[in-house]
Nucleic acid binder design. Sequence first.
DNA 1: GTCTATAAGAAGATAGAC
DNA 2: GTCTATCTTCTTATAGAC
Lengths: 187, 187
Amino acid sequence: MTQKGNASRERITAIANNLIYTKGYNQTSVAEVADAVGITKGNLNYHFRSKDDLLQAVIANRITTIIATLQQWDHDYPQAKSKLKRFVQMLRSEEESIVRYGCPMGSLNVELGKDQLPLKDKAWQMFDLYQKWLAKIFVQLGYKNSKSMSKHLLVMAQGAALMSYIYSDKKLLREECDRIEEWIDSI
Amino acid sequence: MTQKGNASRERITAIANNLIYTKGYNQTSVAEVADAVGITKGNLNYHFRSKDDLLQAVIANRITTIIATLQQWDHDYPQAKSKLKRFVQMLRSEEESIVRYGCPMGSLNVELGKDQLPLKDKAWQMFDLYQKWLAKIFVQLGYKNSKSMSKHLLVMAQGAALMSYIYSDKKLLREECDRIEEWIDSI
DNA sequence: GTCTATAAGAAGATAGAC
DNA sequence: GTCTATCTTCTTATAGAC
């Protein structure tokens, strides 16, 4: 709560995003965020009138990132199965943080799910972006049950992220990625 | 924080267990637990010197239950694959609560994982009981990689529980159980 | 915009009477 | 064992000066 700090909304949001991911939303105080940014609580409350308001901005930010990522993937990987593999690849490239902090989407949804329903809806949208994107691909692949298939892929990815997080086990995460990719090849 | 209440440790633990499951540990206050039990905070603090102490008792309780359950399953289902199916069956019979509150083990581990390391170790033991029990079965089935196989089954089960919880989707949970059972048949 | 100061409440835990 | 009362700390949020 010292230092100077040019505190644009974006700057605060980015730092809050990181803290909320690594510590959890309820376990992160606004004082901590302000401290990390280098401003005072009072100043932070000028930019965001409430803690929930801050989380909304964080989630909105994540949603924007996800949309951009999916567009990029659509552009980079024309083939349907390549898109699916790219999705799995995300688990591999993020293995370090997943094993330490879990999946940012999964953790946040679990945390908000028990109460705080209005915010949960926002957090839920993150999942739905991936799900709808995946479903589109399964349609391309000729599946009638594209929704079920896309959710199944999310189930495997979330299960892999969750268990490798709980066991702090990179090897497990890699093995599960292998299995998911085998599954993609087999369909 | 009114009413009379014969407050044995067991009674408090059972009620706390339920609240912690449905609301989450950090979102459950000791005042709430005391209220649900029908005693005062002061009294609760007589039985459990701290909130962490209370959670330890809750987890110890769960561990005892898990051990008893696994022994029962060992007794009731002599065949290896029947044991695995019984494990999956748990997801089906608990679908109502899983869809509403998630998996009690998974949620607690995620919640404690971000900080509170001493308690996480305790919570982690719950998972390990299942994992070791499953691994034993895969050994029976002749698998060299029994550990990997047992964790894979946990991955699928946890993924199914998590996603069906996030989507509040019983149909998804059932479909994923079907897939897991198909997998068991195929190995 | 950014600060200091402070309000207002919640939560965990303790002291002491009964 | 169980209660009432109190303490302390943490947390969110506001008020007002600069």
